[in-house]
Amino acid sequence: MRVIKRIKGFSLVELMIAMVLGLVLLGGVIGLFLSNQNTARATADMSNLQNSVRLTFQLLSQDIRSAGFAGCNNAPRVVSVIEVGGVTPAWANWVGGIQGFAADAQGNESIRLMYGSGVSNSVNTHAPPVFTLSAAPNLGAGDIAMICDDSLSSIFQVSAVGATTLSHATAGTLNCSADLGIDFPFVCANPRGRFFSADAMIMRFESVRWFIAPSTRNNAINALFRESIVAGQVVAEEVLAGIASLSFAYQQDGQAFGPVPFNAAINMGNVVAVNVTVVLDQDAFTSIELSEEQRTIEFLAAVRNRL
């Protein structure tokens, strides 16, 4: 007689228990995956923020280090022949190359930095309003330029360029006169011929302002802007969004070390270093938890041309 053995399957209760255990295990795996994903995203966001901050302050440091460079070792004697509506605009009004400003209504300060930059051209001859250069000009029509010799530096707008020439005529430019400033201080209404001798240098003139304003991408948060002059026009570029505050302190030559906050009594012509303090806005970085130390960025940059 054959004995038939019945093969038993899993009961419903066993299947339910197995499913529950499987779901618990799967939930743990998914939770670990999401946690790792969030950690990786936060790490990437922090890395991107750190890179953006580093590049931003490298640019700001470079502007501070370059401030006051007028070429030819005659920084005290700098004039501007640029006028808008009969008045020299703030961006062309040389005040030693550094101008600090008091805090605005939101408590944020700003700074303007001016200097000659780029590859210079050497002058062969000067028959106003035309310079003949030793090589092709590195500037274009409309650019703001600075020329210097051993007695004076002048800020002007380029009216035209040729193969080896560069002009500073008044027509179609912001130049109030073809005179480049034999008098110091310069008075545009009283022009006198000023000839720059051979070996005078012409370079690009930079006038940049760093300030805080609502971000162009999200006006609910503030951003750090760098304002520069392009072909005689003021152009503001957003550099870093998510800024809570910006402030500067100034170290003066001959004083014990200790940069002081801005005040109207500071002689900007005597500033040899600028301390910058920026505080990041936590609300602008929702995926990153920033400590107080991480939010506050501070550095000191020396004004190389005054050391």
Rank of each mutant, 00 (worst) to 15 (best):
I4F: 15
K5R: 11
I7M: 08
F10K: 12
L12R: 04
M16K: 07
M16C: 10
A18V: 15
A18Q: 06
M19W: 02
V20R: 02
L21N: 04
V24D: 04
V24E: 03
G27H: 01
G27F: 01
G28I: 10
G28Q: 03
I30N: 05
G31Q: 02
F33Y: 05
S35F: 15
N36V: 12
T39R: 14
A42M: 10
A44N: 10
L55T: 06
T56I: 07
L59S: 08
L60K: 14
Q62C: 11
D63Y: 11
R65V: 09
R65K: 12
A70L: 10
P76N: 02
R77G: 06
V78Q: 01
V81L: 02
E83R: 14
V84A: 12
G85Y: 03
V87H: 02
V87I: 13
N93W: 00
V95G: 05
V95S: 15
G97V: 14
G100K: 03
F101V: 03
A103Y: 00
D104F: 13
Q106C: 04
Q106M: 11
S110V: 00
R112E: 08
L113S: 09
M114G: 10
Y115R: 13
G118E: 04
S120W: 04
S122E: 14
A127E: 11
P128C: 06
P128T: 01
V130Q: 06
T132R: 14
T132A: 13
L133F: 13
P137G: 07
D143W: 07
C148E: 07
D150Y: 13
L152R: 15
Q157N: 04
Q157D: 08
S159E: 06
S159G: 02
A160D: 09
V161S: 11
T165A: 06
S167L: 03
G172K: 01
G181S: 06
C188G: 10
P191V: 00
G193I: 15
F195T: 15
D199P: 03
D199F: 11
A200S: 15
M201E: 08
E206F: 12
R209S: 14
N218R: 05
A220K: 14
R226T: 00
R226A: 10
E227M: 14
S228P: 00
E237N: 08
E237D: 11
E238N: 05
V239E: 12
A241I: 04
G242K: 02
I243G: 02
A244K: 03
A244I: 05
S245L: 06
F248E: 00
Y250F: 10
G254D: 06
Q255I: 10
A256F: 11
A256Q: 12
F257G: 05
G258S: 05
A265F: 03
N270G: 07
V271M: 12
N275V: 03
V276Y: 01
L280E: 09
T286M: 11
S287A: 13
S291D: 15
E293K: 14
E293Y: 12
R295E: 05
R295F: 06
A302W: 14
V303W: 00
V303N: 01
V303P: 01
N305I: 14
